[in-house]
Design a protein around this nucleic acid. Structure first.
Length: 762
DNA sequence: GTGGGATCGGTTTTT
DNA sequence: CCGATCCCAC
């Protein structure tokens, strides 16, 4: 067992004691992934059946990496592990079991966009105002209650939830939730939460199914346990109940998904639910320099909510952490690109040794531009994923509809794309008919000859139905790749893109080709995997069917290509960087209101989560760490002044060095210049109007540029004294805004010299 | 039913 | 600044 010799004592203990409930608490850089992979490999080497091992991760990236590493040690057996993200593993199980609760095994998976679109539709159908019932917020709420295992019925009877909704002036939320669930069910569709929820439901309702999986999975292992939510834990707890061979690996200090329901309670409950558990602590850090480890420790100790832990390292002190101030976001980008160039020359780092980490995806732009100008190859993770692009979703929608006629979202997307004369009003009528007769949209389409519709439209619809049915018939004879190409041709989808010679058009065309390629790969991949078989004897999950492909693809977030091996600088959010490490790390945008984000400044819990996030960010670095911030930053195309992040002050002085000091006075000078320039700037299109601020909150209309002065008076009147902390410049449509800093942030806006209070602060 | 121009509103983070 | 949406002319 040569691989065991690569481990230190604590790691080895955690690898070889494979039985019984186990918790491995592993600090950043402590070889957590290695321990987990070796533990699984060890199980296999000791003769465990790979099909009896369930290993759950959070990202596809993590599970791919782990499978590869296990394969190196334990051979091709690793391919048969039941391993993947929670969502993909449960989707696989549901493919076998979903029929028990009335879903087809070919159920569609709705991604976030599909589900939001459905919610939007429902809100409109119910005649509700989408300014009050904001689809995003409703979606968030539905997701939250699903993960708390609250059914629509329970929601409607829960006085606390009802009161909350009433206070938010959204009393119909419970009803929306109910309708949303019904519509998903009717469409044969599950959203991301449903994959968990329905798995849980089936295990609870059907003891024989529970029995089956309890005995199938003799070993259960969970990575990043601190990020599991209540529902996920409830499921694995059930499954592991018989053999009790459950291993969780995690670090409460790296819990950064509370916003989506992850809870520390799972760690505490775990100790309660499995009282005789063994705990292994991995605290030695092999990744970072002493300076970085020290900064991380001091920082995280400021959090009250934490299990006491201290990471340490035998590595050298290393370079000091460099804090960098730049005048603007663009110069921040330029500085980082310069720095990368210099380090590559002087110290021979590879491109792939660098990572630029930011808080929000929107920040990537400046770095992209600078890197491109410096001819440094880079790769951006996250942002708009490949599978969210319009052209991809369009083709996928055809495929989805072919597999599942009832998929409402897919249907709505492509019934008139490319245009075939079935417009919005026709579709509206059909949907109303379907709702009234309690049918599905597809049923109405199929029976369109019974309804009163203009002949032209009728023909168009009949032709459409016929086309989709013919695709479905062909799907039985063709493989997924041939079918997809056939569909692309028949629908003119591909030729439409091919004829578009704009830059975007060409890239869309290429994207579709890439999708076809990936389907081809999927079809030709002859990796053997033991199939799942239903009680009815149906063979599932080893086929190359379109249905399997579609379910897999929806759960894929980004490009799972082997980009890790390419020699490129990596750009990503801090969230996406979890589990990764780089010799040189730039954590950028270290500004108050950005990192920590402004929503987190008013709650202790949220601020602590931001701090854990920052902890994750800096512990990605092996040798060099740069923390940069800009004095000014564009937001919605408008200039803002920024303060350095409080987190910068939480790093001990003796491990940092500064670069690019800018005098405070100078900043104020610039602020004032802007201010005076603004008040002199003539604002066009000023409507004639009364000139006194109204107390009712009605927009106050000023007649000219003096509106700015008037605006400040309104501010004082409404909010009391405050100082101007930033000004957003006069943009394309003459917007000016003042940020006030009294208790919180107050903001007003001058628009066509019309004054409006946009947000009242906290 | 379609396409163009004006207007409004919005930024966490992921499966 | 950028995309979604609304409104209007064909």
């Amino acid at each position: 067992m040569s691989y065991l010799e690569e481990l230190n004592n604590a790691q080895r203990e955690a690898v070889v004691n494979t039985d019984g409930p186990t918790m491995i608490v592993a600090g950043p850089g402590s070889g957590k992934t290695r321990v987990l992979t070796y533990r699984i490999a060890h199980l296999l080497n000791q003769g465990a059946d790979p099909f009896s091992i369930l290993a759950l991760t959070f990202t596809n990236k993590a599970s791919e990496a782990m499978r590869e590493r296990i394969e190196k040690i334990a051979g091709t057996n690793a391919r048969n592990l039941y391993m993947g993200t929670f969502h993909s593993v449960f989707a696989r199980i549901l493919r076998v079991e979903a029929q028990k609760i009335g879903y087809p095994s070919n159920f569609t998976i709705y991604d976030t966009d599909d589900s939001r679109s459905l919610i939007k539709t429902i809100i409109k159908e119910q005649g509700l105002d989408d300014k009050i019932y904001k689809p995003n917020q409703i979606q968030w709420r539905i997701s939250a209650v699903k993960n708390a295992l609250i059914t629509p019925q329970q929601y409607a009877e829960d006085s606390e939830l009802i009161t909350e909704d009433r206070n938010q002036r959204r009393p119909a939320t419970a009803n929306l939730y109910k309708i949303y669930c019904e519509r998903c069910f009717k469409s044969g569709a599950m959203d991301f939460d449903d994959l968990l929820l329905n798995t849980h439901l089936i295990l609870e309702k059907f003891p024989e199914v529970l029995y089956k999986y309890q005995h199938k999975f003799k070993y259960v292992l969970i990575d990043e346990f601190q990020d599991t939510n209540y529902l996920q834990y409830a499921i694995v707890k059930k499954i592991a109940d018989v053999f009790q061979n459950i291993t969780v690996v995690g670090d409460d200090a790296q819990s950064i998904y509370a916003f989506r329901g992850a809870t520390i309670d799972n760690i505490l409950n775990f100790e309660k639910d499995f009282p005789d558990l063994k705990v292994y602590k991995l605290e030695q850090n092999y990744r970072s320099t002493q300076n970085i480890v020290k900064a991380a420790n001091e920082l995280i100790h400021r959090n009250k909510n934490q299990l006491k832990k201290e990471i340490w390292t035998e590595n050298g002190k290393g370079e000091l952490i460099k804090i960098v101030r730049t005048p603007s976001d663009n110069e921040e980008g330029r500085w980082v690109a310069d720095s990368i160039t210099e380090l590559k020359m002087r110290e021979h780092f590879r491109n792939s040794g660098f990572a630029i980490l930011y808080r929000t995806n929107a920040q990537s732009r400046a770095f992209e531009e600078a890197l491109r100008r410096h001819n440094i190859p880079y790769k951006i993770y996250g942002g708009m994923s490949f599978y969210q692009r319009k052209e991809i979703k369009d083709l996928l929608a055809y495929l989805k509809l072919t597999v599942n006629f009832y998929d409402e979202e897919a249907l709505k997307r492509i019934i008139n794309y490319p245009a075939r004369g079935i417009g919005q009003s026709t579709l509206d009528k059909i949907i109303i008919t379907a709702t009234n007769e309690n049918k599905r949209i597809w049923d109405v389409l199929e029976e369109i000859h019974y309804f009163d519709v203009p002949t032209r439209t009728k023909n168009a619809i009949e032709e459409f139905v016929l086309m989709i049915k013919s695709f479905a018939a062909q799907s039985l004879k063709m493989n997924a790749y041939d079918l997809a190409s056939h569909i692309g041709k028949t629908t003119k989808l591909i030729s439409e893109l091919y004829n578009d010679k704009t830059v975007e058009g060409v890239s869309r065309f290429e994207n579709v080709q890439e999708l076809l390629n990936s389907i081809k790969e999927f079809v030709e991949d002859d990796e053997v995997q033991q199939p799942d078989i239903t009680e009815e004897g149906e063979v599932l999950n080893n086929d190359k069917s379109l249905g399997t492909f579609l379910q897999t693809v929806t759960l894929l977030t980004g490009d799972e290509k082997d980009t890790a091996n390419q020699d490129t600088v990596k750009l990503m959010t801090v969230h996406a960087a979890k589990g990764l490490e780089f010799p040189v790390v730039y954590v950028v945008g270290m500004e108050e209101n950005l990192f920590p984000g402004q929503q987190s400044l008013y709650s202790m819990e949220d601020l602590e989560e931001e701090r854990r996030l920052f902890y994750v960010a800096i512990t990605r670095a092996e040798k060099r760490l740069f923390l940069t911030y800009a004095n000014t930053r564009y937001k919605f195309g408008q200039l803002n002044y920024c303060d350095p992040s409080r987190f910068l002050q939480e790093i001990p002085e003796n491990v940092i060095t500064h670069h690019g000091e800018m005098k405070r006075a100078k900043i104020h000078e610039r602020t004032n210049t802007l201010l005076s320039g603004l008040s002199r700037a003539p604002l066009t299109k000023a409507p004639a109007a009364p000139s006194s601020p109204s107390a009712s909150g009605e927009p106050f209309v000023a007649d000219d540029a003096s509106g700015l002065q008037a605006g400040m008076e309104v501010m004082h009147e409404k909010f009391g004294e405050g100082k101007v902390v930033s000004i957003e410049g006069v943009g394309a449509n003459k917007i000016a805004a003042i940020h006030f800093n009294g208790y919180g942030i107050k903001k007003i806006m001058l628009k066509f010299a019309k004054l409006k209070i946009l947000s009242g602060g906290m």
